[in-house]
């Protein structure tokens, strides 16, 4: 909504997180965003801001506890069979109506495929702006506005964006950008139930079924403490064997650069980077990866980075905490051997 005499900025308070459910559980990105929302709401305390989590789905009983312990002051639950599957039309109608009713100042959501489908629909229906894939969210001290930072042009530019004259200020954020804040198990708050209106269920889109990935193709890069990534330097699909061996030895997951995926050596679900996943493990081991900016944006906030590369001047070698100059086919088996002993 464009702000005007009648609908002034101070009618809009609260920081909303549009929650997501994955396989009956709260999605990790929702918990990450609640921590960030707390931070933002504290800086808007003068506006009386609270952290609110909006959750849509079916059979959500009890999930509010986890949201409260991750710092939601208020949880709005819309539980309806019509929301069992993610239906863009129904979800967008409900979210739009509730935003108009409660008027949050800020609304953020995970930049998952669902978040990236729903948020732009809602933003246009609300006639406000939306910043995609943010890597930073801050409150500007002078204006109280949300400063949204995001990479564009393949990560070559970092832009700061604001949405001054329209409310709510909306952004999507990738999983792994913010850290989950320590839980407060005694945390409680206000629980509100909202409903789906009959006319919101009338839509020409019908979702028939939803299926999860089988175990084989699911590798959880987000949950791994250690990620071992192979780049074009592994030469071919067989070259990934040394990568897998090292990952097994440290109990970590296997990542990959886009070049290796484009060459068909490993599946897309392993891709780290701008068009893949953003990860933040404790240790990231990049093997035969040059460190093009598109790859770096997906892993540069890892706690400890080890790079193995023949070329001492590859960009990744300057970003790394430890840069090992050498042939990965010689170095990695040595490391794996020491770790296995």
């Amino acid at each position: 909504m464009k702000l005007s005499e009648l609908d002034r900025a101070d009618n809009y308070n609260d920081v909303w997180v549009l929650g997501e459910i994955a396989e009956g559980k709260v999605h990790r990105v929702t918990l990450e965003l609640l921590g960030k929302a707390k931070d933002l709401a504290e800086k808007r305390i003068s506006a009386g801001s609270k952290v609110v989590c909006l959750l849509l789905g079916h059979q959500l009983d009890g999930l509010e506890k986890e949201l409260f312990s991750h710092h939601a002051d208020k949880v709005i639950i819309v539980d309806d069979e019509a929301l069992k599957f993610f239906n863009d039309s129904i979800h967008a109608s409900v979210v739009t109506r509730l935003v108009n009713k409660y008027k949050p100042e800020i609304m953020i959501s995970g930049a998952t495929s669902k978040g990236r489908s729903l948020m732009p629909l809602v933003a246009v229906k609300l006639e406000t702006g939306l910043t995609a894939d943010c890597t930073g969210l801050e409150i500007d001290e002078d204006s109280g506005l949300l400063l949204q930072t995001r990479p564009a042009y393949g990560g070559n530019i970092i832009a700061t964006i604001k949405c001054e004259d329209y409310r709510p200020q909306m952004s999507t954020v990738r999983q792994g950008v913010f850290k989950v804040q320590p839980e407060d198990v005694s945390g409680t708050g206000e629980l509100i139930s909202e409903f789906v209106l009959d006319e919101e269920k009338q839509t020409s889109l019908t979702v028939l079924s939803e299926e999860g990935l089988d175990g084989e193709s699911r590798i959880n890069l987000h949950d791994a403490n250690v990620i071992v990534t192979g780049g074009r330097g592994v030469k071919n699909a067989d070259g990934f064997k040394v990568i897998h061996d090292l990952a097994d030895a440290v109990g970590g997951a296997v990542g990959a650069s886009r070049a290796t995926i484009d060459s068909g050596w490993i599946s897309y679900s392993h891709q780290v980077g701008q068009t893949g996943l953003t990860v933040q493990p404790e240790v990231y081991i990049a093997c035969g990866v040059s460190g093009q900016i598109q790859h770096l944006v997906g892993m540069q906030s890892s706690d400890f980075i080890i790079a193995i590369n023949k070329d001492p001047d590859a960009p990744i070698m300057h970003l790394a905490d430890v840069a090992i100059v050498g042939d990965l086919f010689e170095v990695i088996p040595e490391i794996t051997k020491l770790l296995s002993n």
């Binding site: 702006g129 070559n156 832009a159």
Partner: peptide, 11 residues
Amino acid sequence: SPTRVVSTRKP
């Protein structure tokens, strides 16, 4: 346009 780029920088 509701959104406005206020600054850009290199990563």
